[in-house]
Design a protein around this nucleic acid. Structure first.
Length: 112
DNA sequence: ACTCTGACTATTT
DNA sequence: CAAATAGCCAGAG
């Protein structure tokens, strides 16, 4: 079952996927984009996150780049809120990088 | 319709 | 390993 390639729900889809991220786990923009069927639109995911700021309470802190770096931490209020949020979920972060990222990584395609 | 931008990623230097 | 480059796509002015 394929989704419409329309960009109509692009942001909504991103929000849905982020909301599906289990507690104590993180995912990457690319993974979300890939799940949406647009592995090349990873930047759009980040863009959606930017818009998510004005949207629902999207746990954007659970979304990091492929290296496990908290690239979007500068978009959060405060200086290290994102890191604190992650640490409060049991995710260790050091130097803006998630420790044992590979183990904490959650891929939406794993839902299958 | 055109141009610029960006919370990315993979590849190359 | 760090920095630079190119590809990529959709939103905003």
């Amino acid at each position: 079952m394929k989704y419409k390639p329309s960009t109509l729900n692009f942001f909504e889809r991103v929000y849905d996927v982020v909301l599906l991220v289990p507690y104590g786990r993180v995912t990457s923009y690319g993974a979300i984009a890939n799940y949406l069927g647009a592995p090349k639109s990873s930047r759009m995911v980040g863009w959606a996150m930017n818009a998510a700021h004005s949207r629902l309470d999207v746990p954007a802190h659970r979304v990091v780049n492929r290296q496990g770096l908290l690239t979007g931490k500068h978009h959060f209020p405060g200086t290290n809120l994102m890191q604190q949020l992650l640490e409060s979920e049991g995710i260790l972060v050091e130097d803006d990088k998630i420790i044992d990222f590979k183990n904490k990584f959650w891929d939406p395609t794993s839902l299958y």
